[in-house]
Computed example of a mutant assay.
Amino acid sequence: MLLGFEHIGMTSGDLDRAIAFYCDLLGFKLVLRKPQTQGELAFLDAGGGMLEIFAPGPGIQPARDVPQGEAGARHLTFAFTDIGTVIEQLATAGVDIIERPRRAHNQEMFKRVAFVRDPDGIIIELAERAEGR
């Protein structure tokens, strides 16, 4: 029996920078950070699942966007009560804003969405849930 979503694993070129982005700017909670044989690992709690971030050390290239026609994870989405406020905080912090808040295409699921890049170039969608979700 399925219990729920647990975590997604990611690689980062700088664990301190990733933790600062996800915890300090987006509000995640650091639940575990520990050294590995090669690098360091952290688990960050988003409230409904976690990010497992592995930083193997120097030389990690930024993430690349999944090209059209190729399978893969296109972005990570996190729900907020007010994405306008979050976007302004991220912009002030110098985060790469891809798309400012706009009306969502799938209004059954989300009212508004916005897109940014995390410090490793991964696309992050910020979403306000539709009424009743």
Score class of each variant (00 low, 15 high):
residue 50 M to Y: 00
residue 7 H to I: 11
residue 117 R to L: 01
residue 121 G to W: 01
residue 79 A to K: 10
residue 8 I to Y: 04
residue 128 E to D: 05
residue 104 A to G: 05
residue 109 M to W: 14
residue 103 R to Q: 15
residue 108 E to G: 13
residue 93 A to Y: 02
residue 27 G to P: 00
residue 79 A to C: 13
residue 52 E to S: 07
residue 67 P to S: 06
residue 104 A to C: 04
residue 70 E to W: 13
residue 90 L to N: 02
residue 126 L to K: 09
residue 54 F to P: 08
residue 92 T to R: 12
residue 27 G to D: 01
residue 8 I to C: 09
residue 108 E to H: 13
residue 7 H to W: 03
residue 61 Q to H: 12
residue 52 E to F: 04
residue 22 Y to N: 10
residue 98 I to N: 03
residue 88 E to L: 11
residue 66 V to Q: 10
residue 81 T to G: 15
residue 125 E to P: 01
residue 21 F to Q: 03
residue 59 G to H: 05
residue 18 A to K: 07
residue 67 P to Q: 06
residue 63 A to C: 14
residue 104 A to K: 02
residue 46 A to S: 01
residue 34 K to M: 13
residue 49 G to T: 01
residue 57 G to A: 08
residue 7 H to G: 04
residue 119 P to R: 05
residue 51 L to P: 06
residue 75 H to K: 08
residue 96 D to H: 13
residue 130 A to L: 03
residue 95 V to W: 05
residue 58 P to I: 04
residue 77 T to I: 11
residue 25 L to F: 01
residue 105 H to M: 15
residue 84 G to N: 10
residue 16 D to R: 10
residue 36 Q to L: 15
residue 45 D to H: 09
residue 41 L to P: 11
residue 106 N to D: 13
residue 52 E to C: 02
residue 113 V to C: 09
residue 42 A to R: 07
residue 67 P to W: 00
residue 118 D to T: 03
residue 114 A to D: 08
residue 16 D to C: 07
residue 55 A to I: 11
residue 27 G to Q: 08
residue 132 G to P: 05
residue 102 R to H: 11
residue 105 H to W: 14
residue 56 P to E: 01
residue 93 A to M: 02
residue 133 R to E: 14
residue 27 G to Y: 07
residue 77 T to P: 03
residue 53 I to G: 09
residue 96 D to T: 14
residue 43 F to C: 01
residue 114 A to I: 06
residue 121 G to T: 04
residue 114 A to P: 01
residue 7 H to T: 00
residue 131 E to H: 11
residue 36 Q to G: 11
residue 115 F to V: 04
residue 36 Q to T: 14
residue 47 G to D: 04
residue 40 E to D: 10
residue 67 P to G: 08
residue 21 F to G: 05
residue 130 A to G: 06
residue 123 I to K: 15
residue 34 K to F: 12
residue 69 G to R: 06
residue 50 M to D: 14
residue 40 E to N: 12
residue 79 A to Y: 13
residue 69 G to P: 05
residue 10 M to C: 08
residue 42 A to I: 10
